[in-house]
Every structure is written in C-alpha cells, then in structure tokens.
C-alpha cells in the first residue's frame, strides 16, 4: 500500500500481473506435474534402465539403476555409460533400515510409495488427462488474451546479446528490478517460460504417446521423429528431468526475488512494484 512518506523512499503500488486463467492453470499444472513426476518414477522403477532406438539392448542401457554386493553388504549402483556410481539409499537400493530393497528411485519419490506398477499407471494416466486439458486451456486462452504475444514473446531489444548478458549478470547477483521494469518479464524469464510451456511440456505428451503401441499405429511418424520407442522413453525421462531442473530454479528465483510478492501475485494476481514517491498521494495509478 502506498504510504504517504516524506522524501525519497519509493512507494509500493500493486499492479495486476497475472490473469485469472494464468493463475488457475498454473496451480492445476503444479498439481498435475507433481503427481505425474511421482507416478512416472513409479513406472520407471518397473524397469530402471533406459535405451536408445526401437528396442531394448538389455546388456547396454545408457543408464541403469540396481543393487550390487560390495564387501559383504548390498549397495545401490547407478551406471551411466561406462561410469559406475555408488548411490546407496537413494538410487538402486533404498528403504528404511532393515527394509531396504532394490528399486530405482526411493519410496519417497514415487506414487504409490510401494512397488505397484498398475496403480502407478492409473495415477499417471489420470493426471495426464488433467495435464493435457489444462495445458490446452492455457495455450488457447493465452493465444486469445495475448499472454503469449504481449507478455512472453521476447522483443528485439530483449534478445540483444548485450541485454541477455546484462540479465544473466543481474540474475547471478540475485539483483532483481523492483520498479517499472518489474512490470514485465525479463528475457530470461520469457525464454524459460516459453521453453517449458511450448517445448518441454508438449514434449512430455509427444514422447509419452510415442511409447503407446496403439498410438504408434495411428501416428507412426512419431516413432521416426524420436528415433524409436526406447528413444522416446529416454527423451520422456530427460524432458522430465529438465522440468525438475526448471522447477528447482523457478522456486529458487521466486524466493530470491521476493517469495511473498511472487506467491501473492500467482494467487490474487496483484504484484507490488516500487515507484518514485509522488507529490500527490494516490495519483500513482
């Protein structure tokens, strides 16, 4: 709220930052993506190895998780190419003391937590529907209301190397604009949001469908696009990992640039920015 202050302290004004449909689809997406990630790991755990190509090359996965015996005890092992990592307690072998078992991802990361592929699939496909319907709503509404064109599409000035570099430096220093500049997304935000909304999330659906033997008959070109069903499974996993990476970075930026202000703006739509004090209070907007 703008406080009548004497002098130089800037005033805070609330601006309308996020439309209702953006906020609603954001939170539904949070729910759907979280449960898809967890049930996806449950499904992955049924065969914790990934391959490239049409078929599985069982003795040569590019990544695999499992257990092994070392000095009389069982350890978790993750193999990536020719690299072997000991990942006991997290990947390959985990569980509470005395109840450890061989499993890809640990119980706390999977839905359900126990080994149950059938239920994992039910959760996954239910939230896949929610995710797709919600994503289409976001896309269509964002095209209609201009969210993509006005808020997300970078301008020429945005993508100027000098500007991009400046944004990288200020982000690295965790210095975020508070004034007029904060009314709009910066180029790194635009790039990240567009990459997630237009590339990574649709990639999950496309690679997911490519794993379907039924859908393969309807759209065999997807197999050619991704290089086979096992490649699609690998790309599904890599895209999901990139989404997890985005979520972690996104959460870190939310906290670093003012957790409360950001969270409020995604709930009520109102975002506080600082403007130079005006002589006449209340004339800011």
């Amino acid at each position: 709220m703008p406080k009548p202050e004497n002098g130089t302290k800037p005033e805070k004004v609330l601006v309308y930052r996020h439309r209702g449909v953006t906020r609603l689809t954001h939170w539904i997406n949070v729910l759907a993506v979280s449960l898809l990630l967890m049930s996806g790991l449950e499904i992955f755990n049924a065969h914790p190895a990934l391959y490239w190509g049409q078929k599985a090359t069982f003795d040569q996965p590019w990544i695999s998780m499992g257990s092994a015996e070392k000095a009389g005890r069982t350890i978790g092992v993750t193999k990536i190419g020719s690299l072997t990592l000991e990942t006991t307690g997290v990947l390959g072998y985990s569980g509470p003391p005395g109840m450890q078992e061989e499993r890809g991802f640990p119980a706390w990361a999977t839905l359900p937590s126990s080994r149950d592929l059938a239920d994992g699939r039910h959760w996954h496909f239910f939230f896949a529907w929610l995710f797709v319907i919600n994503g289409l709503t976001y896309w269509i509404m964002s095209l209609i209301n201009g969210h993509i064109r006005k808020d997300l599409a970078p301008s020429l000035a945005d993508v100027a190397p000098k500007n991009v570099w400046r944004e990288i430096v200020t982000h690295a220093k965790l210095r975020f604009p508070k004034g007029e500049e904060a009314r709009h997304y910066n180029v790194l935000q635009k790039g990240a949001y567009l990459a997630v909304a237009l590339v990574l999330l649709p990639m999950m659906v496309a690679t997911g469908l490519t794993m379907s033997p039924g859908f393969n008959a309807a759209a065999p070109w997807l197999l050619d696009l991704f290089g086979g069903r096992q490649s699609a499974r690998t790309l599904h996993f890599i895209s999901a990992s990139l989404i997890v990476g985005f979520i972690l970075l996104h959460l870190a930026m939310v906290v670093a640039s003012g957790a409360w202000n950001n969270i409020r703006s995604m709930i009520t739509g109102k975002y506080a920015i600082e403007v130079p004090p005006s002589p006449a209070a209340g004339a800011a907007e």
């Binding site: 499904i43 992955f44 049924a46 065969h47 190895a49 391959y51 049409q54 078929k55 599985a56 069982f58 592929l117 699939r121 794993m211 033997p213 069903r229 096992q230 499974r233």
Partner: peptide, 12 residues
C-alpha cells in the same frame, strides 16, 4: 513387430 512390455522394455 515390436513387443512392448508394460514394464517399459521392447523386443523385436
């Protein structure tokens, strides 16, 4: 043809 196990692997 390709055989797709529900577990995730495939064989031809």
């Amino acid at each position: 043809t390709r055989h797709d196990c529900v577990e995730g692997w495939s064989a031809i």
